[in-house]
């Protein structure tokens, strides 16, 4: 379970609060630059907030002794040094959290990268980079998944795979929080939606609650944010 409480960061986030619950996919929606990535980076202990708290299962991310076994995070890029092989990258990550080496091959297999395991990360296509990032997120078999724009750069079959993966993860009782600026991606995947615009949460609730009074989630999004006018 993820609890974000009155998070503020000068110029970026203004009193952001929301929750993501186990067994559900929570979509964190907003136009580019609205504060989605900023919120997720504070939640993951990468950036600092001036005020407020962001907790994962009741603790700050940095206070978990083996965080990869609690949270799997997918951020922009593969997260691997481009000169290192995919396998070498996952091996040091596994070692850092005391995970067995055999787990590296398991996650490579899971995301379909077994054949490319010895290839340098810098030679990966965008889609392969995302899969390597996802493999790293899954290393510790975490109950919480936090994914920033997970389908960016994926081809149609990759997008379908990701949607099925997110649904089945929530079905297993995991907490899934993903950000996106594309509505179509979330319709049919998300149970709950949080809409953020210019650093402020403008709507949150179940998909049904947020879309009430609008024909589609996309219409709700455009009505709630200034999205229609920035083009």
């Amino acid at each position: 379970m993820i609890a974000i409480d009155h998070l503020s960061r000068p110029g970026r986030l203004h009193d952001v609060s929301f929750e993501a619950r186990p067994g559900r996919v929570t979509g964190f929606l907003g136009p580019n630059g609205a504060g989605k990535t900023s919120t997720l980076r504070v939640l993951l202990g990468l950036d600092r907030a001036r005020d407020g708290t962001a907790l994962v299962a009741g603790r700050r991310y940095a206070d978990w002794p083996r965080p990869l076994t609690v949270v799997g995070a997918l951020l922009d890029g593969s997260g691997a040094h481009r000169a290192r092989s995919a396998r070498a990258h996952l091996r040091w990550m596994a070692a850092s959290n005391g995970l067995p080496r055999s787990r590296v091959d398991e996650v490579l297999d899971l995301v379909g990268l077994s054949a490319e395991a010895g290839k340098r990360a810098g030679r990966f296509s965008l889609g392969m980079s995302r899969r390597l990032g996802l493999a790293a997120a899954l290393l510790g078999d975490p109950p919480v998944l936090i994914l920033d724009e997970p389908v960016n750069g994926l081809d149609p079959s990759g997008i379908r795979w990701m949607r099925e993966f997110l649904r089945s993860s929530a079905g297993e009782g995991r907490t899934v929080l993903l950000s996106s600026h594309l509505m179509g991606e979330l319709a049919g995947v998300a149970d709950d939606v949080v809409i953020i615009d210019r650093g402020r949460v403008v709507a949150s609730g179940t998909v049904g609650e947020v879309t009430a009074g609008h024909p589609t989630l996309e219409d709700a999004f455009l009505a709630l944010t200034a999205g229609g006018t920035t083009w």
Binding site: G45, L46, P67, V71, L75, G79, A80, N97, A136
Partner: peptide, 13 residues
Amino acid sequence: RGSQINSTLLAMP
């Protein structure tokens, strides 16, 4: 490029 530092701090915060 590739931002390994993100992975490093996620694994060892």
